[in-house]
Design a protein around this nucleic acid. Sequence first.
DNA 1: TGGTACATTCCGACCAGCCGGTATGTTATT
DNA 2: AATAACATACCGGCTGGTCGGAATGTACCA
Lengths: 222, 222
Amino acid sequence: MLMKTASRARKSVSGSAKVKKERAPEQLRRSILKSALKLFEIHGYHATSVDDIVKDAGFTKGALYHHFPGKEDILLELQRAYIDNRVESARTVLEKHESVQDRLRHLILEGVIAIGKFRAPVAVFSQERRFLSQKRFAEVKRKRDELERIYVSVVGQGIKEGMFNESVQPRIASFAILGMLAGAYGWYRPNGPLSANEVADQLCRLVIDGLAKGRKVGEKLP
Amino acid sequence: MLMKTASRARKSVSGSAKVKKERAPEQLRRSILKSALKLFEIHGYHATSVDDIVKDAGFTKGALYHHFPGKEDILLELQRAYIDNRVESARTVLEKHESVQDRLRHLILEGVIAIGKFRAPVAVFSQERRFLSQKRFAEVKRKRDELERIYVSVVGQGIKEGMFNESVQPRIASFAILGMLAGAYGWYRPNGPLSANEVADQLCRLVIDGLAKGRKVGEKLP
DNA sequence: TGGTACATTCCGACCAGCCGGTATGTTATT
DNA sequence: AATAACATACCGGCTGGTCGGAATGTACCA
């Protein structure tokens, strides 16, 4: 009951006017987004009410609906931010590395790192994006398909260059790798016994070298 | 409006008394479970109301709550049926096959087949089981851990027998394979271009032989 | 065979509380 | 003075769940 007006005592240190200083409304937006992300990860989108979000963020529903048209727009904004970031990261990997082995290795490493850095967004993206309305889901899906295409293209490149076995389809191999990474959310912890590098190394070993030991030279050439 | 009492005209063809004939209440239970499964897969547990379920099943809420203590018990029963079945299938694989390669291959095949045969349960299990209450979730998790342990033990066996590369940890390899399979729900369709056997074959190739082509003989022996 | 007491199965109406969203007023910023 | 940024109170509709009673099935006995 005390502190009733405390939240309204916003910092007036707006400094020089020309400099784009962080406006107060932006803080609210970020605060809402942050609380929503946290609650969506824990309870899921449908089990999180707008009241839950504003209570956690320390605001009221009126404020929220002044900045967001509806609950779903919050989810959409979270998904956008996440998938855009992931696609960009994947593209950066392609720019920084040319060889197939390097590209695939760093793609996988990037995926593992993302789980550590963006645990909540990763979970919310994979579990809640299906609750977006058709049109909004389609937008997110398009971007996610782009990510897939990057993986497929790298595996395809490996086959064309004669580095990878042509008997495995790039699409399936890529989807399998993506699935591996998605599943890693369930067991990989950045503060756990294995570092992101070590985990990525293990996964690379698995999909590049395979489990089987040696005796692999004499594969029939076409 | 017509057919008001039609649903109550249950078949009285109870046949010979001693034979355990399907009682009417069991039909209702199955009907409810079936509708719930379908709706949970499409809309998720929290976005599916009890009214939705009974409407889809053609009953009323009173009937449902006569057979189920609550909404969550429906979810629990679905999860139990699914995971028990999967664990049993995995155990059968171990019984039928002795060699590591056979075991792993058929474990993966079984996983792919399960996606085709039990699409809805697979989806609901992976996406909705987290909404069970602590105690119930723990029960389901115990069983699912058993499934994991089977995979881990097979990979471990492969390493002990010298078939598999000892540089990859059984736990990680197993989790990766399980993730692969879980992800396959998103792209594998039993009526699609590839059969379950072909998909399983691709995945086996990936995790057993790896993507890399040949040149693998000279690995340092300990 | 038929009647009857009892248990099971199921319906329809109902409930308090919560849902996403809105309308209106008040305060702060420009 | 005008506008943006909030708080408060409120809304109709839906939520999971309950309850009393009606229809039906079943066991037992005559």
